[in-house]
Measured scan of single mutants.
Amino acid sequence: GLMCLEHEDEKVNMYCVTDDQLICALCKLVGRHRDHQVAALSE
């Protein structure tokens, strides 16, 4: 899978609806997407 741009060791596994961007779990937990609307990726 694709790796996160901000956290190079994390794979992107969710999608930020607010930013129209693929993000990883760390982005959602501690990153700038924590208050955004996110959706899980169905692979």
Rank of each mutant, 00 (worst) to 15 (best):
A25P: 07
E6I: 13
C16G: 04
C24I: 00
D19Q: 02
Q21F: 08
M14V: 03
M3Y: 05
R32A: 11
E10S: 08
G31Q: 03
V12C: 05
R32P: 09
M3N: 10
D9G: 11
T18P: 02
A25H: 14
S42Q: 09
E6T: 10
D19S: 03
E6S: 11
Y15L: 10
E10G: 04
R32C: 09
M14W: 09
Q21R: 11
K28D: 09
N13T: 09
E8H: 11
V17P: 13
D9F: 14
G31W: 00
D19P: 01
A25F: 05
V17Y: 08
Y15G: 10
S42H: 12
E6H: 12
D9N: 15
D19T: 00
Q21C: 06
H33A: 01
L22Q: 15
Q21N: 13
A39P: 02
E10F: 07
C24M: 00
L22P: 15
T18E: 08
R34C: 11
D9Y: 07
T18M: 03
V30R: 09
V38I: 05
D9Q: 13
Q21V: 11
N13M: 05
T18D: 07
S42R: 07
I23T: 08
C16A: 02
E6Y: 04
E8G: 12
V38E: 05
H36Y: 03
E6M: 04
E10V: 03
D20V: 04
L5V: 06
K11A: 08
C4H: 05
R34Y: 02
R34K: 15
A39W: 03
Q21K: 14
D35P: 04
A25R: 12
N13Y: 07
Y15S: 09
A39L: 05
A40I: 00
V12G: 11
C24E: 00
L5P: 11
L22H: 15
A39D: 12
L41M: 12
G31T: 04
Y15K: 15
E10R: 09
I23C: 08
R32L: 09
G31L: 02
C4R: 01
V17G: 12
R34Q: 12
E8Q: 11
E10T: 06
E8W: 03
E6W: 03
E6V: 06
D20S: 09
H36M: 00
E10Y: 05
A25Q: 12
V30H: 14
E8C: 13
V12A: 06
L26G: 13
G1L: 01
D9I: 11
